[in-house]
Design a protein around this nucleic acid. Structure first.
Length: 209
DNA sequence: CCTCTGATCTTCT
DNA sequence: GAAGATCAGAGGG
């Protein structure tokens, strides 16, 4: 487990597509109240382009209590409750006032697996080759890591609770990055087919290949 | 393998 | 009242 340095502010100072691609292979860490580290390699992301993107919560400059974190500076956690049930994690991108973000859709768990199995309950699927449904979805990975809407607004550049570590050598066991349309946004008309989802080819923890 | 559905909260109509 | 950046379980092939 070679620890990497904390992801720096400059990483988020570019377009959401670059950030979405750049996050693949980096490590997402959630430190528990007891100090335990839970972590996983990010293997699937989606970019949300903000005011012009019909699939984004900030389309047309819409700002609500819920999506306020998307307007915060890059690296701020935007965690919202989806379908009234699932906490979903994004990282805001760009300068303050620029409401773009990257959704974390899947991780490959690497640290704290026993705790994640407990959190995920019966739905877990242990296997010799590594579990494939501990973090294989935006709602699943937050549950496994213990991230909830209470973590909305956290500055991951400074927080000791939720942050991203930049690995010396990006861990992309699945090699190449695949580009595809985003999931669950069929209502977004022409934006529904935009190639804004990115995942590590062949990785078993990706939500949908 | 697949499709269908309930759960349950925020936002908008 | 309806729909949604989802998940798990049930049922059919």
């Amino acid at each position: 487990m070679s620890d990497g340095p904390r992801m720096e502010a400059g990483f988020y100072a570019r377009d959401p597509v670059g950030v979405a691609r750049g996050l693949l292979g980096q490590r997402l860490v959630a430190v528990q109240p007891d100090g335990t580290r839970l972590a996983g390699t990010i293997v699937e992301t989606e970019a949300y382009l903000g005011v012009k993107d019909k699939a984004a919560h900030t389309f047309g400059w819409r700002k609500t209590e819920r999506n306020a974190s998307m307007f915060e500076p890059g690296g701020t956690a935007y965690v919202f409750l989806n379908y009234g049930i699932h906490s979903v994690l994004n990282l805001s991108v760009g300068a303050a006032g620029v409401p773009t973000a990257v959704l974390i859709r899947a991780i490959e768990p690497t640290e704290g697996l026993p705790t994640m199995f407990e959190r995920r309950g019966k739905a877990r699927r242990p296997s010799e080759l590594g579990s494939s449904d501990l973090g294989s979805g935006p709602g699943k990975l937050t549950q496994a890591l213990g991230i909830t809407v209470a973590d909305d607004g956290i500055d991951t550049l400074a927080s000791d609770r939720v942050f991203v570590e930049r690995l010396r050598q990006r861990s992309l066991p699945g090699r190449k990055i695949v580009v595809a349309k985003r999931i669950g946004i069929d209502y977004a008309e022409e934006w529904a087919d935009a190639p804004l989802r990115f995942y590590v080819r062949g990785n078993p923890h990706v939500s949908r290949l």
